[in-house]
């Protein structure tokens, strides 16, 4: 197990290196100049050149990349071009919000998807099944930027149960987490439904049923355990989608997370923040996948054996 985790960690470093290089190159290749952001339009060209030199932005790109990687080794992410604040400070400020939103969305997705998927499978070809799948279809075809305002109008303006936006306690988490979690709940419930359906027809379930275990009990004991593997994979996979969805959700709900930070920084060409957030996101992504892989390996020993260590 330790070997397995170590191998994964080593490859994680490789991915982070790859992502950092890619982001760095792309960021510097797209049009737009951070010097203009900092000095505004009215600056003298001599002032601009001086600042460019001071920031090392006049150097060839590969040298800049080297410098960037060097600083990265010392865990120095630099300071924001726009606000002058340390990138690490900003990230640490923003990260809890994103984590909370992601956790909320996943919780809601699972709370909805498990019962829905299981019951739909148990009652295949009935109204419950049809209704559950209709929900799933609606869920995937409603874009975040529509669902968000819709939920605000319903839950905040008409019902008055939740605050419209902002991050202020558990109540304020409900609407953004719903917005972000709905699509995931939809995909997940379909996944669970088909996983349970597949398992339900397998021999051991029939055996269990023959032994006189009740249907519900059987499903919970056996079917769910088997259905967990594909669901875990999906969760790992969906995490990236969750984060990109979070960009829109965070913007709508003025949620102070990493997603909205990144999109603003990209638009303002705030290189250090963009690089910092993307690094952070890939770290999270890698972390989550490491955890799912370990869980996967724990649940299914064959995976571990197959993995060359």
């Amino acid at each position: 197990m330790t070997k397995f985790v170590l191998a994964r960690l080593a490859s994680a470093l490789l991915i982070i290196f790859g992502v950092s290089c890619l982001v760095f190159m792309l960021m510097h290749l797209i049009p737009g100049d951070p010097i203009d952001v900092m000095l505004g339009e009215t600056a003298h060209p001599t002032d601009k050149d001086a600042l460019r030199k001071a920031m090392g932005l006049h150097l060839p790109l590969h040298i800049q990349l080297l410098h960037y990687l060097q600083r990265l080794l010392h865990l120095d992410l630099g300071t924001s071009i726009h606000s002058g604040r340390a990138v690490t400070t900003i990230l640490l400020e923003r990260f809890p919000a994103t984590l909370e939103l992601g956790a909320g969305a996943i919780t809601i997705a699972m709370l909805v998807a498990f019962p829905l998927g299981i019951f739909a499978a148990l009652r295949q070809h009935t109204v419950i099944d049809a209704g559950a799948m209709a929900f799933a279809l609606t869920g995937v075809s409603i874009p975040n930027f529509w669902l968000g305002p819709l939920l605000i109008m319903g839950g905040a303006l008409w019902l008055g149960w939740f605050p419209v936006s902002g991050r202020n306690g558990l109540l304020s988490l409900v609407l953004p987490a719903l917005t972000l979690g709905t699509a995931m709940a939809a995909i997940l419930s379909r996944m669970i439904r088909s996983a349970v359906l597949e398992v339900i027809h397998e021999d051991f379930i029939r055996t269990a049923q023959a032994k006189g275990l009740g249907a519900t009990q059987t499903v919970f004991r056996h079917a769910l355990r088997n259905a967990l593997l594909p669901v875990l994979t999906l969760l790992g996979l969906q995490f990236g989608a969750l984060l990109s969805g979070a960009v829109i959700t965070e913007t709508i709900f003025s949620w102070p997370g990493i997603g909205s930070l990144m999109i603003e920084a990209i638009q303002q060409r705030d290189y250090p923040i963009v690089q910092g957030t993307i690094l952070w996101i890939s770290l999270m992504y890698i972390g989550i996948n490491l955890v799912t892989d370990v869980l996967y390996a724990l649940a299914d020993p064959r995976i571990r054996l197959r993995h060359p260590s």
Binding site: S11, V23, L243, I266, I278, I286
Partner: peptide
């Protein structure tokens, strides 16, 4: 393949889109 997939998954599509639009 796994490494490439992971890099792509960890990489924000937004940045790629802006880069493509710009280029």
């Amino acid at each position: 393949l796994i490494r490439i997939i992971d890099i792509f998954l960890a990489f924000p599509g937004i940045l790629l889109a802006i880069a493509l639009a710009g280029a």
